[in-house]
């Protein structure tokens, strides 16, 4: 048996025994297909936000080292001379509560987690209400459409994806491609018109997610939306409380979104 055959034989044994060592072929194939287009689009969107002063918040509730790795890659890039970008790990038991006072409209949130990670649902939903762009790297059952602006998914065992370097490849490429985009400043201006008048007509049509900040003396709610603070009529919903997530249409809260804490 040739050396490489012996290597392959042991390989088969390991894979069949533990199902831990996915062949690395899959790694490149995944990204050579249409998925690379999502990675590219996410990188361009992130570069545009960085160019307009945004901060990248990083959360990985079960695997905090991934959030730290992403943050350090942007703050202290591996290639000398690349610009340092604001990226910060968010940790702890109250993720969105700790992010709420510090995240600004236009910021970004990168989450690395399983799809069923309990603390992530609230974080993603709040981000939407605050106008924070969401990028979700994960594993497990695929999340529902609309769960994040960009979903970069690994269909692999958790030990391979989280501990075997597959997530690392994804966020490495994300930071490398983001820096490539930043070398093209002429292409980074497109998103600056976010939530201009035209878009607000569109989002009113669809309903815009907002977070109730306070109840005003006139009975209307002060609501935080991607466009800023708005006074919103709440007579259609039973009663609004600070912290509630509401769906807004034409200046009126039409639905109390589930998951609002009391």
């Amino acid at each position: 048996m040739a050396r490489s055959d012996a290597f392959e034989a042991r390989e088969s044994e390991r894979v069949s025994t533990y199902r831990l060592l996915a062949t690395d072929d899959a790694l490149s194939q995944d990204l050579l297909g249409p998925d690379a287009a999502d990675l590219a689009a996410a990188s361009l969107a992130m570069a545009r936000r960085f160019a307009s002063g945004a901060t990248l918040w990083c959360a990985a509730p079960s695997w905090p080292w991934h959030a730290q790795h992403v943050a350090v890659d942007f703050v202290h890039p591996v290639i000398a001379g690349e610009r340092s970008l604001p990226a910060v790990m968010v940790s702890g038991d109250h993720l969105w509560e700790s992010l709420r006072p510090i995240a600004r409209a236009g910021d970004m949130l990168l989450v690395v987690s399983r799809s069923d990670e309990p603390s992530v649902a609230g974080l993603r939903q709040r981000s939407k209400a605050w106008g924070v762009l969401t990028v979700w790297i994960g594993t497990g059952p695929r999340p529902e459409p609309g769960s994040a602006d960009f979903v970069l998914w690994v269909d692999d065992d958790e030990t391979v994806s989280s501990y075997g370097g597959r997530f690392a490849l994804l966020y490495h490429l994300l930071s490398e491609l983001t820096h490539v985009c930043l070398e093209n400043p002429g292409l980074l201006e497109a998103e600056q018109a976010v939530c201009g008048d035209e878009v607000c007509i569109t989002c009113s049509d669809e309903g815009c997610l907002g977070e109730v900040v306070a109840i005003r003396a006139d009975g209307r709610a002060q609501v935080r939306t991607p466009a800023g603070l708005e006074a919103v009529d709440t007579t259609l919903i039973d009663r609004a409380h600070p912290g509630d997530l509401v769906l807004i249409h034409a200046g009126t809260a039409v639905t109390l979104v589930e998951g609002s804490p009391r």
Partner: peptide, 14 residues
Amino acid sequence: MSHESTGFLNRCVD
């Protein structure tokens, strides 16, 4: 992987 736009954030790309 799939790109799921929130719509109101990304539509004004021009």
